[in-house]
């Protein structure tokens, strides 16, 4: 999928994003629009893991950690400085730095696959437990109470850069989220086209061979992992703008969901995780409205079915089917 017609794919992303910004706020009601913003933030989150796992070959069980750190970083900074122009870089720097630190420990410690999964999971759990226990007045950072289990409900929305008196309405926040999603997709495409991205993919294909060819595997893995952490943080920032931050952002359920999105959408693609996130998020929301069925049951069944029947995910399977059809048409 990579390398072929990247310019066309980037153009398609720009057109789709522009169309979404132009059309959706006119046709959707406010509630649905805010929901669409949540979907966009989830798609950014799925994209971040799609990059780290699908191209870097690093299965991170704790992508939710960066999601939560981005959200908390934004909420705490925004409550402290009033002008969210300065909260945004902080919210992006915190998860990226956390990813860099965690990645340094893991990759330079030469920790193998399964153990990496455990460590990322453990870090997420520590954050979950810690934020859950921060109820009460002694737990505050500057002017921002951490709020324990209840999170920070009073997160201020983004404002126009440099103009704190002018918070963005939900329509604008939606536009920001869609732009961020498209930008992350394009950034992913560009990174994968670069020399750095090619080496990352080479390492996924055969780590030892890449190492024998003289590449410092640890550095490249650290690079892609940090980029993933940055995108995860961006997703958290967007999420904080349309819902609010709470310890559930760090929960095992979120970490699991992200993996499911990527898996169902298609590992090793960038559009797949986005599609997976939107489809499954819609499925969970729809299942939540059914009185008799529990959404967890449906999500679980989808995951088991996906692993057994579609181990490559929706997008690659569909693409392969399309190619087969074309070949059959071309044959006679």
């Amino acid at each position: 999928m990579t390398g072929r017609r990247p310019t066309a794919e980037i153009a398609a992303a720009v057109v789709l994003a522009a169309a979404a910004i132009a059309v959706l706020p006119r046709v959707l009601e406010l509630f649905a629009l805010i929901n669409a913003t949540v979907y966009a933030s989830m798609a950014v989150l799925a994209l971040s893991l799609g990059l780290v796992w699908g191209f870097g070959g690093i299965l991170c069980f704790g992508q939710a950690a960066f999601f939560g750190l981005g959200g908390y970083g934004y909420a705490v900074a925004a409550l402290n400085v009033a002008d969210t122009t300065w909260a945004v870089p902080i919210a992006l720097a915190v998860p990226a730095a956390a990813a860099a630190l965690l990645g340094y420990v893991m990759f330079y410690g030469r920790i193998s696959d399964v153990y990496m999964g455990v460590i990322t999971l453990t870090v997420t759990l520590i954050l979950f437990n810690f934020t859950n226990s921060t109820a009460g007045d002694q737990w505050r950072i500057g002017a921002a109470p951490l709020g324990g289990f209840n999170g920070i409900p009073s997160t201020p929305p983004l404002n126009l850069p440099g103009d704190p008196g002018n918070p963005l309405p939900p329509e604008r926040i939606f536009a920001v989220a869609v732009v961020c999603l498209a930008a992350c997709y394009i950034l992913g495409k560009l990174v994968l086209r670069s020399r750095f991205g090619r080496v990352v993919v080479a390492i996924r294909e055969n780590e030892r061979r890449a190492e024998l060819l003289g590449y410092d595997v640890r550095r490249y893995k650290l690079g892609i992992f940090t980029l993933g952490g940055f995108m995860g943080g961006l997703a958290g920032l967007l999420f904080a703008n349309c819902v609010f931050v709470s310890p559930t952002m760090f929960s095992l359920f979120y970490s699991g969901q992200i993996i499911i999105w990527v898996m169902v959408g298609g590992l090793g693609t960038l559009a797949g995780p986005i599609i997976g996130a939107v489809l499954l998020q819609a499925l969970t929301t729809w299942a939540g409205t059914l009185p008799a069925v529990n959404p967890s049951l449906i999500l679980g069944a989808v995951l088991v079915a996906a692993v057994l029947a579609l181990p490559k995910g929706l997008l690659p399977t569909a693409a392969a089917a399309l190619r087969r059809l074309r070949r059959r048409d071309a044959a006679p």
Binding site: I260, A305, V307
Partner: peptide, 29 residues
């Protein structure tokens, strides 16, 4: 489930995660 996935550690982890969600959902229901 598990029988079909021996030797594919990640896939087993994901499938059993799905089972876990499914059991939680079913028991809640």
């Amino acid at each position: 489930v598990i029988r079909r996935l021996y030797g594919r550690m990640l896939d087993t982890m994901l499938a059993t995660w799905g089972l876990s969600l499914g059991f939680i959902g079913a028991v809640t229901m």
